[in-house]
Amino acid sequence: MIGCMSLSGTVLRFVLPRAAPEPEQLTIVHAGDTLPVTFVRSGRARRASLRVDVAHRRVVLTAPLRMARGTAVGFAESQAGWIAARLKRLPDRRPFADGAEVPLFGEPHLIRHRADRRGTVWREPGEIHVAGQPEHLPRRLRDWLTAELRHRLVPLVHAKAGRVERPVKRISVRDSRSRWGSCGPDGALSFSWRLVFAPPEVLDYLVAHEVAHLVHLNHGPRFWALARSLCDGPMEPPQAWLKANGETLLQYGA
C-alpha cells in the first residue's frame, strides 16, 4: 500500500494494481513424452485456457491472476492429449538457405545463393537469387520479400480505401505473429510481412478486411457486407485457405 497526505491532513491509501508474474515454463508428461507449456497469468482472463503459439512452437496456458496454480496446471494436464496432438501438427521450420523452397505469392521458388555476385537479390523463373556472403542471405532475402509485399500491398490498400472514401494514415509491414492484419482507430493499417508467401487472393481478402475496418471498427453484418464488396472475388475461399494453411506461413525464415 502507498499513503498520500491530502490538504485536509487525511491520509489517503490506495493499492497498486497487482502485476502479472513472469511466464513460467512447465512440462507435462503424456504417453511417455514431455510436453513444453508456457504458463502465463492475465488480468483479463476469466478462466484457464490453452492456445498454440506457432511462431515459438509452444502451447501457452493462460489463467486469471487469482486462480490457484494447481487448478490451472491441473486443467492443462487434463488436456495433455490435445497438447500433444497440436504440438505434433506444428509445421517444420524452413530456414532461408541455399536450395530451400519458399512460396512467393503462392508460387514455389527455390533459393539460390550467388557468392559470385554482390549485395543484391533478384528473381528468375521459379528461383530467387541472393548474392553476397552466406551469413547475409536470411536478412537480405527477408528484406527483399518485405519490399515485394509492399510493392503489391500499398497500391491495393489505397485502391480499396479510395472505394470507401476513407484516408489511410499509415501502412506498416511488421513481423506480427498473432494476426495477419490490423486497423487502428486513427486509420493506420498494419500487415504481417509473411503474407508474401500467401496466394494473391488471400492478400486481396485481408486488405479488404482491414480497409472495411476503416468504416466499421467491429465485425457486425455491415462490416462483413462491406468487406465482401471490397474483395475482387468470393470471400470464402481465401478465408478457408487461411484457416487450413495460415500456420504454415510462420515456418519460413525461422
Score class of each variant (00 low, 15 high):
I2P: 06
I2Y: 10
C4I: 06
C4S: 08
M5Q: 12
S8L: 07
S8Q: 12
S8A: 12
L12H: 09
L16F: 06
L16E: 15
R18T: 13
R18S: 13
E22D: 14
E22R: 14
E22S: 11
V29W: 07
H30R: 03
T34Q: 12
L35T: 02
L35M: 01
V37A: 09
V40L: 11
V40S: 07
R41V: 04
S42H: 10
S42Q: 07
S42M: 05
R44Q: 13
R47P: 09
R47A: 15
R51D: 05
V54S: 08
A55S: 11
R57V: 08
R58L: 06
V59W: 00
V60C: 10
A63R: 04
P64F: 00
L65H: 05
R66V: 08
M67I: 06
M67N: 00
M67H: 02
R69K: 12
G70A: 12
G70R: 13
A72C: 08
V73T: 05
G74Q: 12
G74E: 09
S78E: 12
S78I: 02
Q79Y: 00
A80S: 14
G81Y: 00
A84P: 11
A85W: 02
A85E: 15
K88Y: 07
P91E: 10
D92F: 02
R94N: 11
R94T: 14
R94Y: 07
A97Q: 13
A100L: 03
E101V: 15
P103V: 08
L104C: 11
L104Q: 03
F105W: 11
E107P: 11
H109T: 09
I111F: 08
A115E: 15
G119C: 06
G119I: 02
W122K: 03
E124T: 15
P125G: 05
G126D: 11
E127H: 13
I128C: 11
G132M: 10
R139I: 09
R142S: 09
T146M: 09
E148A: 15
H151V: 04
R152Y: 06
L153V: 08
V157P: 04
V157G: 01
R163S: 07
R163V: 09
V164L: 03
E165C: 09
E165K: 10
R166F: 03
P167Y: 01
K169A: 14
K169G: 09
I171F: 00
I171R: 06
V173Q: 03
R174Y: 01
W180N: 08
W180K: 00
G181R: 00
S182W: 00
S182I: 04
C183W: 01
G184N: 02
G184L: 00
P185E: 10
P185A: 13
D186K: 04
D186I: 01
D186W: 00
G187M: 05
G187D: 02
L189K: 01
S190K: 05
F191Y: 12
F191H: 00
W193P: 07
W193L: 11
W193Q: 03
A198R: 04
V202M: 06
L203Q: 04
L203K: 06
Y205L: 11
L206W: 02
A208W: 00
A208H: 04
A212V: 01
H213N: 07
L217V: 03
H219P: 08
P221K: 05
R222N: 12
R222I: 03
W224L: 04
A227F: 07
R228A: 15
S229R: 10
G233M: 09
E236Q: 14
P237G: 07
L242M: 09
K243S: 13
N245L: 06
L249Q: 02
L250T: 02
Q251E: 14
